[in-house]
Design a protein around this nucleic acid. Structure first.
Lengths: 132, 132
DNA sequence: CGGCATCCAAATAGATACTG
DNA sequence: CAGTATCTATTTGGATGCCG
Protein backbone atom coordinates (compact mmCIF):
# COMPACT_ATOMS: atom_id res chain seq x y z
CA UNK A 1 0.00 0.00 0.00
CA UNK A 2 2.55 2.50 1.14
CA UNK A 3 4.80 1.63 -1.79
CA UNK A 4 2.58 2.92 -4.58
CA UNK A 5 3.43 6.37 -5.83
CA UNK A 6 1.67 9.47 -4.63
CA UNK A 7 -0.31 10.03 -7.77
CA UNK A 8 -1.76 6.56 -7.71
CA UNK A 9 -2.37 6.69 -4.02
CA UNK A 10 -4.09 10.04 -4.10
CA UNK A 11 -6.16 9.07 -7.08
CA UNK A 12 -7.16 5.81 -5.43
CA UNK A 13 -8.07 7.44 -2.15
CA UNK A 14 -9.95 10.15 -3.97
CA UNK A 15 -11.91 7.56 -5.83
CA UNK A 16 -12.58 5.60 -2.64
CA UNK A 17 -13.80 8.74 -0.96
CA UNK A 18 -16.05 9.34 -3.89
CA UNK A 19 -17.49 5.87 -3.65
CA UNK A 20 -18.13 6.25 0.05
CA UNK A 21 -19.83 9.56 -0.47
CA UNK A 22 -21.86 8.20 -3.35
CA UNK A 23 -22.99 5.13 -1.52
CA UNK A 24 -23.99 6.98 1.63
CA UNK A 25 -25.98 9.52 -0.34
CA UNK A 26 -27.43 6.67 -2.33
CA UNK A 27 -28.46 4.91 0.88
CA UNK A 28 -30.13 8.08 2.09
CA UNK A 29 -31.99 8.61 -1.16
CA UNK A 30 -33.09 5.00 -1.15
CA UNK A 31 -34.62 5.36 2.32
CA UNK A 32 -36.12 8.83 2.10
CA UNK A 33 -35.99 9.61 -1.58
CA UNK A 34 -38.95 10.01 -3.81
CA UNK A 35 -41.40 12.84 -3.78
CA UNK A 36 -43.35 12.00 -0.68
CA UNK A 37 -41.58 10.50 2.31
CA UNK A 38 -39.94 13.65 3.59
CA UNK A 39 -43.07 15.65 2.96
CA UNK A 40 -45.15 13.26 4.99
CA UNK A 41 -42.64 13.37 7.83
CA UNK A 42 -42.61 17.16 7.77
CA UNK A 43 -46.38 17.35 7.78
CA UNK A 44 -46.52 14.90 10.66
CA UNK A 45 -43.94 16.82 12.64
CA UNK A 46 -46.13 19.86 12.23
CA UNK A 47 -49.10 18.23 13.89
CA UNK A 48 -50.87 16.30 11.17
CA UNK A 49 -51.54 12.81 12.38
CA UNK A 50 -54.66 11.62 10.59
CA UNK A 51 -54.76 10.12 7.13
CA UNK A 52 -56.97 12.80 5.68
CA UNK A 53 -55.09 15.60 7.41
CA UNK A 54 -51.92 14.33 5.83
CA UNK A 55 -53.53 14.02 2.43
CA UNK A 56 -54.79 17.60 2.63
CA UNK A 57 -51.43 18.93 3.76
CA UNK A 58 -49.22 17.05 1.32
CA UNK A 59 -50.20 18.65 -1.93
CA UNK A 60 -51.04 16.31 -4.76
CA UNK A 61 -50.72 12.97 -3.06
CA UNK A 62 -53.40 10.39 -3.72
CA UNK A 63 -54.87 8.11 -1.10
CA UNK A 64 -53.32 5.08 -2.63
CA UNK A 65 -49.85 6.54 -2.67
CA UNK A 66 -50.18 8.02 0.81
CA UNK A 67 -51.26 4.66 2.07
CA UNK A 68 -48.31 2.82 0.63
CA UNK A 69 -45.84 5.50 1.72
CA UNK A 70 -47.16 5.32 5.29
CA UNK A 71 -46.67 1.59 5.22
CA UNK A 72 -43.08 1.93 4.11
CA UNK A 73 -42.37 4.62 6.66
CA UNK A 74 -43.78 2.36 9.34
CA UNK A 75 -41.74 -0.63 8.20
CA UNK A 76 -38.60 1.44 8.17
CA UNK A 77 -39.07 2.66 11.72
CA UNK A 78 -39.87 6.30 11.04
CA UNK A 79 -43.47 6.32 12.20
CA UNK A 80 -45.95 4.29 14.19
CA UNK A 81 -49.60 3.66 13.48
CA UNK A 82 -51.86 4.01 16.50
CA UNK A 83 -55.34 2.58 16.32
CA UNK A 84 -57.78 3.81 18.94
CA UNK A 85 -60.67 1.37 19.02
CA UNK A 86 -63.23 3.82 20.39
CA UNK A 87 -66.26 5.01 18.54
CA UNK A 88 -65.63 6.12 15.96
CA UNK A 89 -62.38 4.28 15.48
CA UNK A 90 -59.57 6.78 15.17
CA UNK A 91 -56.27 6.08 13.53
CA UNK A 92 -53.26 8.27 14.01
CA UNK A 93 -49.74 8.20 12.72
CA UNK A 94 -46.96 9.52 14.88
CA UNK A 95 -43.29 10.09 14.38
CA UNK A 96 -40.86 7.85 16.18
CA UNK A 97 -37.65 9.28 17.61
CA UNK A 98 -35.71 8.02 14.62
CA UNK A 99 -37.45 10.59 12.45
CA UNK A 100 -35.71 13.31 14.41
CA UNK A 101 -32.40 12.24 12.91
CA UNK A 102 -33.72 13.70 9.65
CA UNK A 103 -33.83 17.22 11.03
CA UNK A 104 -30.51 18.23 9.51
CA UNK A 105 -31.48 16.84 6.12
CA UNK A 106 -34.84 18.57 6.15
CA UNK A 107 -33.24 21.84 7.24
CA UNK A 108 -30.62 21.71 4.53
CA UNK A 109 -33.17 20.86 1.86
CA UNK A 110 -35.61 23.55 2.86
CA UNK A 111 -32.93 26.23 3.05
CA UNK A 112 -31.62 25.21 -0.33
CA UNK A 113 -35.12 25.01 -1.80
CA UNK A 114 -35.92 28.53 -0.61
CA UNK A 115 -32.84 30.10 -2.09
CA UNK A 116 -33.24 28.04 -5.24
CA UNK A 117 -36.73 29.40 -5.74
CA UNK A 118 -35.29 32.91 -5.42
CA UNK A 119 -32.70 32.12 -8.04
CA UNK A 120 -35.29 30.78 -10.46
CA UNK A 121 -37.39 33.88 -9.96
CA UNK A 122 -34.41 36.13 -10.73
CA UNK A 123 -33.42 34.08 -13.75
CA UNK A 124 -36.90 34.40 -15.14
CA UNK A 125 -37.13 38.15 -14.66
CA UNK A 126 -33.72 38.84 -16.19
CA UNK A 127 -34.53 36.57 -19.09
CA UNK A 128 -37.74 38.41 -19.74
CA UNK A 129 -35.67 41.49 -20.68
CA UNK A 130 -34.09 39.80 -23.70
CA UNK A 131 -37.18 37.97 -24.90
CA UNK A 132 -40.36 39.86 -24.06
CA UNK B 1 -57.21 38.98 12.08
CA UNK B 2 -56.27 40.01 15.54
CA UNK B 3 -59.73 39.17 16.76
CA UNK B 4 -59.52 35.43 16.20
CA UNK B 5 -58.74 33.43 19.28
CA UNK B 6 -55.25 32.22 20.11
CA UNK B 7 -55.93 28.62 19.26
CA UNK B 8 -57.06 29.45 15.77
CA UNK B 9 -54.28 31.91 15.25
CA UNK B 10 -51.56 29.56 16.40
CA UNK B 11 -53.00 26.75 14.38
CA UNK B 12 -53.13 28.93 11.31
CA UNK B 13 -49.54 30.09 11.68
CA UNK B 14 -48.41 26.58 12.33
CA UNK B 15 -50.12 25.44 9.19
CA UNK B 16 -48.60 28.29 7.18
CA UNK B 17 -45.17 27.38 8.46
CA UNK B 18 -45.82 23.84 7.45
CA UNK B 19 -46.82 24.88 3.95
CA UNK B 20 -43.70 26.99 3.57
CA UNK B 21 -41.49 24.17 4.74
CA UNK B 22 -43.27 21.70 2.51
CA UNK B 23 -43.07 23.86 -0.56
CA UNK B 24 -39.41 24.70 -0.14
CA UNK B 25 -38.51 21.05 0.36
CA UNK B 26 -40.71 20.21 -2.59
CA UNK B 27 -38.89 22.78 -4.71
CA UNK B 28 -35.57 21.27 -3.72
CA UNK B 29 -36.70 17.74 -4.49
CA UNK B 30 -38.05 18.88 -7.82
CA UNK B 31 -34.71 20.36 -8.82
CA UNK B 32 -32.31 17.79 -7.42
CA UNK B 33 -34.56 14.88 -6.58
CA UNK B 34 -34.50 11.55 -8.28
CA UNK B 35 -31.81 8.94 -8.00
CA UNK B 36 -29.16 10.51 -10.15
CA UNK B 37 -28.68 14.27 -10.13
CA UNK B 38 -26.91 14.54 -6.80
CA UNK B 39 -24.83 11.48 -7.55
CA UNK B 40 -23.65 12.95 -10.82
CA UNK B 41 -22.79 16.23 -9.14
CA UNK B 42 -20.86 14.43 -6.41
CA UNK B 43 -18.94 12.35 -8.93
CA UNK B 44 -18.15 15.44 -10.91
CA UNK B 45 -16.98 17.32 -7.84
CA UNK B 46 -14.62 14.44 -7.20
CA UNK B 47 -12.87 14.79 -10.52
CA UNK B 48 -14.96 12.84 -13.00
CA UNK B 49 -15.64 14.99 -16.01
CA UNK B 50 -16.01 12.64 -18.96
CA UNK B 51 -19.18 10.86 -19.93
CA UNK B 52 -17.75 7.39 -19.47
CA UNK B 53 -15.97 8.29 -16.25
CA UNK B 54 -19.26 9.45 -14.86
CA UNK B 55 -21.05 6.36 -16.04
CA UNK B 56 -18.44 4.15 -14.38
CA UNK B 57 -18.56 6.09 -11.14
CA UNK B 58 -22.30 6.42 -10.79
CA UNK B 59 -23.30 2.86 -10.20
CA UNK B 60 -26.12 1.51 -12.30
CA UNK B 61 -26.86 4.48 -14.53
CA UNK B 62 -27.39 3.80 -18.21
CA UNK B 63 -26.00 5.93 -21.00
CA UNK B 64 -29.42 7.07 -21.98
CA UNK B 65 -30.34 8.22 -18.51
CA UNK B 66 -26.96 9.80 -17.87
CA UNK B 67 -27.28 11.69 -21.10
CA UNK B 68 -30.67 13.11 -20.24
CA UNK B 69 -29.69 13.91 -16.66
CA UNK B 70 -26.64 15.82 -17.89
CA UNK B 71 -28.85 17.79 -20.22
CA UNK B 72 -31.17 18.74 -17.38
CA UNK B 73 -28.31 19.66 -15.09
CA UNK B 74 -26.93 21.87 -17.82
CA UNK B 75 -30.27 23.55 -18.45
CA UNK B 76 -30.71 24.22 -14.77
CA UNK B 77 -27.35 25.90 -14.41
CA UNK B 78 -25.53 23.29 -12.35
CA UNK B 79 -22.99 22.19 -14.93
CA UNK B 80 -21.47 23.24 -18.22
CA UNK B 81 -20.53 21.11 -21.20
CA UNK B 82 -17.15 21.86 -22.68
CA UNK B 83 -16.36 20.59 -26.15
CA UNK B 84 -12.71 20.62 -27.11
CA UNK B 85 -12.52 20.27 -30.88
CA UNK B 86 -9.03 18.77 -31.00
CA UNK B 87 -8.25 15.29 -32.14
CA UNK B 88 -9.76 13.28 -30.75
CA UNK B 89 -12.65 15.52 -29.80
CA UNK B 90 -12.93 15.61 -26.06
CA UNK B 91 -16.05 16.50 -24.17
CA UNK B 92 -16.02 17.37 -20.51
CA UNK B 93 -18.66 18.37 -18.04
CA UNK B 94 -17.78 20.75 -15.25
CA UNK B 95 -19.59 22.06 -12.25
CA UNK B 96 -20.66 25.66 -12.23
CA UNK B 97 -20.41 27.70 -9.01
CA UNK B 98 -24.10 27.19 -8.38
CA UNK B 99 -23.46 23.53 -7.67
CA UNK B 100 -21.49 24.56 -4.61
CA UNK B 101 -24.67 25.75 -2.96
CA UNK B 102 -25.57 22.08 -2.68
CA UNK B 103 -22.70 21.33 -0.32
CA UNK B 104 -24.82 21.53 2.81
CA UNK B 105 -27.47 19.27 1.32
CA UNK B 106 -24.94 16.71 0.18
CA UNK B 107 -23.21 16.79 3.55
CA UNK B 108 -26.42 16.31 5.46
CA UNK B 109 -27.55 13.48 3.20
CA UNK B 110 -24.26 11.63 3.34
CA UNK B 111 -23.99 11.91 7.11
CA UNK B 112 -27.53 10.69 7.50
CA UNK B 113 -27.01 7.92 4.96
CA UNK B 114 -23.94 6.66 6.82
CA UNK B 115 -25.62 6.51 10.19
CA UNK B 116 -28.74 5.03 8.62
CA UNK B 117 -26.72 2.21 7.14
CA UNK B 118 -25.32 1.53 10.61
CA UNK B 119 -28.82 1.41 12.02
CA UNK B 120 -29.98 -1.04 9.38
CA UNK B 121 -26.98 -3.26 10.05
CA UNK B 122 -27.76 -3.31 13.79
CA UNK B 123 -31.44 -3.95 13.18
CA UNK B 124 -30.57 -6.94 11.02
CA UNK B 125 -28.16 -8.46 13.48
CA UNK B 126 -30.49 -8.12 16.45
CA UNK B 127 -33.32 -9.58 14.41
CA UNK B 128 -31.19 -12.58 13.53
CA UNK B 129 -31.22 -13.56 17.21
CA UNK B 130 -34.96 -14.13 17.26
CA UNK B 131 -35.20 -15.86 13.88
CA UNK B 132 -32.02 -17.77 13.04
C1' DC C 1 -62.88 7.94 8.04
C1' DG C 2 -59.18 4.94 6.43
C1' DG C 3 -58.17 2.29 3.62
C1' DC C 4 -57.70 -2.05 -0.26
C1' DA C 5 -58.64 -4.08 -5.04
C1' DT C 6 -58.91 -3.43 -9.69
C1' DC C 7 -58.28 -1.51 -14.07
C1' DC C 8 -56.08 1.39 -17.10
C1' DA C 9 -52.87 5.25 -18.67
C1' DA C 10 -48.51 7.33 -18.42
C1' DA C 11 -43.89 7.73 -17.20
C1' DT C 12 -39.42 5.41 -16.74
C1' DA C 13 -35.98 2.32 -17.54
C1' DG C 14 -33.32 -1.41 -19.89
C1' DA C 15 -31.45 -3.60 -24.05
C1' DT C 16 -29.82 -3.21 -28.37
C1' DA C 17 -28.24 -1.29 -32.36
C1' DC C 18 -26.35 2.48 -34.73
C1' DT C 19 -23.75 7.07 -35.71
C1' DG C 20 -19.99 10.64 -36.18
C1' DC D 1 -15.67 8.19 -27.10
C1' DA D 2 -20.11 10.23 -26.63
C1' DG D 3 -23.92 9.79 -27.41
C1' DT D 4 -29.02 8.92 -30.19
C1' DA D 5 -32.93 6.01 -31.72
C1' DT D 6 -36.05 2.52 -31.18
C1' DC D 7 -38.51 -0.90 -28.97
C1' DT D 8 -40.10 -3.15 -25.17
C1' DA D 9 -40.60 -4.25 -20.17
C1' DT D 10 -41.43 -2.58 -15.79
C1' DT D 11 -42.91 0.79 -12.51
C1' DT D 12 -45.77 4.10 -11.16
C1' DG D 13 -49.86 6.67 -10.75
C1' DG D 14 -54.74 8.15 -11.16
C1' DA D 15 -59.61 6.91 -11.05
C1' DT D 16 -63.09 4.32 -9.39
C1' DG D 17 -65.68 1.41 -6.48
C1' DC D 18 -66.15 -1.15 -2.37
C1' DC D 19 -65.74 -2.27 2.53
C1' DG D 20 -65.72 -2.11 7.72
Amino acid sequence: MKEQNETQKNSKEFSDDCHKLLSSVSDALYAIGGKWKLMIIIAMARGNHRFTELQRMVNGISARVLSSELKELEMNGFIVKKVDVGYPVSIEYHLLPYSETLEEVVGALSRWGMQHREKIKNDMSTQRQTKP
